[in-house]
Design a binder for these strands. Sequence first.
DNA 1: TAATTGACGTTTA
DNA 2: ATAAACGCCAATT
Length: 117
Amino acid sequence: MQISSQTSAMSQIWHIVAMIPEGKVCSYGKVADLAGLPGRARYVSRALKMAPGELKLPWHRVINSQGKISFAENTEPFIEQMQRLRSENIVVNRGKIKMAEYEWQPDLATLVLSIPF
DNA sequence: TAATTGACGTTTA
DNA sequence: ATAAACGCCAATT
């Protein structure tokens, strides 16, 4: 694996995801915005897929803007994500949750000071 | 080198 | 509420 500017962008994303607190969720697009990559929601999904397992990122707390799990229903990862969310007291119905109730509201000051430039 | 693929989002119908 | 049509672009094929 090559350390490059791309890796840097991914690490930005990883830092953001790592900050999502238990019992809360954040959309791919929002993570991208917070990481300074507007319009790059798809890149967030790639970054999560490429993330080393040792980082133990709370990847299950990242869902799409419609409040739904993005893995196809009944697939192994879909089921795991749903179980992980429920284990944090998040109500999930048909892979969908109520965004208004669980969306993470990041504190900008903490955010800025937590991310390396 | 070129084409396809996605753990997505917004706009439009 | 649902769905299609775009836009996006690194990684994969």
